[in-house]
Design a protein around this nucleic acid. Structure first.
Length: 260
DNA sequence: ATGGTAGGTGCCCTA
């Protein structure tokens, strides 16, 4: 079984690219972030045509999360996490049960800067995610939380830690909030399976960052302790960050998990 | 040399 998480940075702009990738890699489950679509605009039929069911939670313009899967997603829950910033809806969380696995697709707020109100929102959002997962742990055994966390868990997940001093994505507060979620009984599976690897998942579009290796590992898959024994591999598909004949890439690459 | 790119929406915002 293959489960993938991918921030596509607009599914509208990326659809041919994503469909091409899905046809080649045939994931069983695909968690998407930053679809930037309203629910009515989600390309349900395009995925149906290649054998996939979709559930989506979006508002249009920004954010938007989906779970696309060969088997139908059930017990769908949208939100359940702090979904409002100053009264404005932000669609950043969606859960569904697929083949007995409770799957959460998450798009954690960026935070902008440590002084910005969006940074407080980011921490509040992570606290609410923790509360939600604490409840989910009582209801489900095999849980996967995959998405763009906008947090580099450790300095080895940053191309140049010195360049990020005082920045979001690496602060103690964010890393502690992530650790607090892991303490519920979750494992950062890519780091767990590849303890010494440097596998970034995001590179800024600007300044040729991808080609210079200037990336971060901020796309994560957390799995519950009962699911970790099923995961045999975790890798980032760097090739999907390159321009291809299917089109231009997202600034994030997909994280691929293989389960037995 | 203190920049740049990409994608939304609509002549700026977000990442």
């Amino acid at each position: 079984m293959k489960i993938v998480s991918w921030n596509v940075n607009s599914l509208n702009a990326r659809l041919p690219f994503v469909l091409d990738w899905v046809a080649k890699h045939e994931p069983d489950v695909l968690c998407l972030q930053e679809t930037k679509l309203k629910d009515d605009d989600f390309p349900y039929q395009a995925f149906k045509d290649i054998g996939y069911n979709s559930v989506h939670f979006g508002q249009g313009r920004w954010n938007g999360v989906a779970i696309v899967s060969k088997a139908k997603g059930e017990d769908v829950v949208c939100g359940g996490v702090a979904e409002y910033f100053e009264g404005q809806l932000e669609a950043r969380h969606l859960a569904a049960t697929v083949e007995g696995i409770r799957v959460h697709s998450v798009y954690v707020p960026n935070g902008r800067s440590l002084e910005d109100a969006h940074f407080d929102y980011k921490l509040r959002w992570l606290g609410d995610l923790r509360s939600l997962l604490e409840k989910e742990c009582k209801l489900f055994d095999q849980i996967l939380v995959a998405g763009d966390f906008n947090i580099a868990p450790d300095d080895q997940d940053v191309w140049d830690p010195a360049a990020y001093v005082g920045c979001t994505h690496v602060s103690d507060d964010e890393r502690s909030a992530l650790k607090s979620i892991e303490d519920l009984g979750f494992v950062d599976v890519a780091r767990h399976l590849n303890p010494n690897d440097v596998q970034f998942s995001w590179w800024d579009y600007r300044g040729g960052a991808f080609h210079k290796g200037e990336g971060l590992r901020i796309d994560l898959a957390l799995v519950s302790n009962s699911l970790i024994s099923r995961v045999v591999s975790a890798r980032i598909d760097r090739d999907a960050r390159k321009v291809s004949k299917a089109g231009k890439p997202s600034d994030h690459a997909p994280l691929e998990l293989c389960l037995r």
